[in-house]
Design a protein around this nucleic acid. Sequence first.
DNA 1: CGCGACGTTGATTTGCCTCAACGATTGTGG
DNA 2: CCACAATCGTTGAGGCAAATCAACGTCGCG
Lengths: 194, 194
Amino acid sequence: MYELFFQNIAKHLQLSAIEEGQISGKLSLKTFAKNEVVLAAGERCKELYFVTKGCLRLFQSHENGEETNILFCPENWWASDVMSFSRGVPSSNSIAALEATEAISIKANDLEDLYIQIPKLERFFRILYQNGFSLYQRRLTLALSTSAELRYELFTKQYPSLSNRISQKHIAAYLGVTPVFLSILRKRRVRSSA
Amino acid sequence: MYELFFQNIAKHLQLSAIEEGQISGKLSLKTFAKNEVVLAAGERCKELYFVTKGCLRLFQSHENGEETNILFCPENWWASDVMSFSRGVPSSNSIAALEATEAISIKANDLEDLYIQIPKLERFFRILYQNGFSLYQRRLTLALSTSAELRYELFTKQYPSLSNRISQKHIAAYLGVTPVFLSILRKRRVRSSA
DNA sequence: CGCGACGTTGATTTGCCTCAACGATTGTGG
DNA sequence: CCACAATCGTTGAGGCAAATCAACGTCGCG
């Protein structure tokens, strides 16, 4: 039932069958309909999700009604509002389903308990956040130093499957441009590659 | 000698005197002259620095010779190229001193040993990276969704001491604008507040 | 003293946005 | 299952934010 989940952990950590059992007891499987809101900004993010099917997005809403997509979470990705989840404060971001989605969830309290029972889990999440930290540093410098055209180019190269799967509107909100301008970029690309 | 360092750890973790001793044995104090390069892109980042005096900057250089400042590290901040430090790969970022700087350093290998001797250190760094992760998510959405003017406004409010201490050139490279444009923004602000 | 880095200012250009109109696609209620 | 509405993507016109290029004063430093 939770194979993908434990395979993901196994990338950085060896768990005994007993430990897997302890963890399994705290997991549950959730399903979300397309466009369903998983976490609304302002709520507390009480669960951490590991996506096994479909795709979630983490995003921030702005006063003017627009949104910035922070992260797409297809199969094998982790989703949560980190600050809210770990410190119990209201979340500043939201989570919603881009497709019909299945995810394995674990509650914040339960994870805290598991950190105590299985201290090496700290190691797993240390590495997970460490990698994410690095990933966002890179995206930040990209955002600050390159044109939308190049950012789109890199996105399609790095995530070719996502760039087909996700609507342009949401890709635009991920790149930080308007859908109108993304459309212009796409047109340009077709011409220049012809 | 390492008071600031252990005070920083104590924010998230209680260490016994013995543990502090074990850690102290792996630390060393380094000094860097103003403008000295601490880590050049392409090298391996073998040490993690905790700044006790002065200020470092983590930055990325681009092909055209320009730079983006990722992070300023004044007293009480941690500096490293995370990916290079933790995985031993060549670093994609550089570190340099903005001022004459003192920092406590620890070697990657030694930290790995300490993770084994004192597993709860994993917890400390898990929390450190978790917070950094969240910080960069926020900066990313800021960079993607707001004007340079607002970003500068927020920077000066959030880090008033840094905004006096650091040259406009480097602040511009942190905000992702040219020094010329930052100068224009500053002029605008003076006028509008008058 | 003189040179080079820094910050300012102005003129011009470019990247991206806004607004608006239009097919095409999706989804939904009758 | 169809009809209609809503959302999405495209295209064009015009505007604003920020870059580029260039010139100049100032300051720190050799």
